[in-house]
Measured scan of single mutants.
Amino acid sequence: DEFHFHWNGRDIRVRGDSEELRRLIEAIKRGELSEEEIERAIEILER
């Protein structure tokens, strides 16, 4: 699976399928994380 979302003017695409990944992306979409937490998560996910 590939998750695709927009954040902070960026087009983010992440491959993978796990419950943890889904929860993280939902939290990002709901605005539950700080900008710094989101940046760090995206860096890890894009590897």
Rank of each mutant, 00 (worst) to 15 (best):
D1P: 14
D1K: 04
D1H: 07
D1R: 02
D1M: 04
E2C: 04
E2W: 04
F3V: 03
F3Q: 02
F3I: 05
H4D: 14
H4Q: 03
H4M: 04
H4L: 04
F5A: 00
F5S: 00
F5D: 00
F5N: 00
H6R: 02
H6G: 01
H6T: 03
H6I: 04
H6K: 01
W7N: 02
N8D: 04
G9W: 00
G9K: 02
G9A: 00
G9H: 01
R10N: 05
R10Q: 08
D11S: 15
D11W: 03
D11V: 15
D11M: 15
I12N: 00
I12Y: 10
I12S: 00
I12R: 01
R13K: 15
R13W: 06
R13N: 13
V14G: 05
V14W: 09
V14D: 01
V14K: 00
R15M: 13
R15Q: 11
G16Q: 07
G16E: 09
G16P: 10
G16C: 03
G16M: 04
G16I: 08
G16Y: 06
D17P: 10
D17C: 03
D17R: 05
D17E: 11
S18L: 07
S18T: 15
S18C: 05
S18Y: 07
S18F: 09
S18W: 07
S18P: 09
E19T: 10
E19G: 08
E19Y: 07
E20C: 13
E20P: 11
E20W: 06
L21K: 15
L21G: 12
L21C: 03
L21H: 14
L21D: 15
L21A: 11
L21Y: 06
R22P: 03
R22G: 09
R23K: 11
R23H: 14
R23N: 14
L24E: 00
L24H: 02
I25A: 07
I25H: 04
I25K: 02
I25E: 03
I25L: 09
I25N: 02
E26V: 10
E26P: 01
E26Y: 02
E26I: 11
A27F: 08
A27N: 14
A27R: 14
A27H: 09
A27G: 11
I28F: 05
I28R: 01
K29E: 10
K29D: 07
K29F: 12
R30C: 05
R30F: 12
G31W: 04
G31N: 14
G31Y: 06
G31C: 06
G31A: 08
G31F: 08
G31E: 06
G31L: 06
E32R: 07
E32W: 08
L33C: 04
L33W: 12
L33N: 03
L33Q: 05
L33D: 03
L33E: 02
S34L: 08
S34G: 10
S34P: 08
S34I: 08
S34D: 11
S34V: 10
E35W: 07
E35R: 13
E36A: 15
E36W: 12
E36G: 10
E36M: 13
E37A: 15
E37H: 08
E37V: 07
I38F: 06
I38M: 12
E39S: 13
E39G: 13
E39P: 06
E39D: 13
E39A: 10
R40W: 10
R40V: 09
A41V: 11
A41G: 07
A41P: 00
I42C: 01
I42T: 02
I42N: 01
E43W: 01
E43N: 12
E43F: 01
E43P: 09
I44R: 13
I44F: 15
I44D: 11
L45Y: 07
L45V: 07
L45E: 02
L45K: 01
E46Y: 03
E46L: 11
E46R: 04
E46P: 06
E46Q: 10
E46F: 04
E46D: 09
R47G: 14
R47A: 13
R47C: 06
R47P: 10
R47M: 12
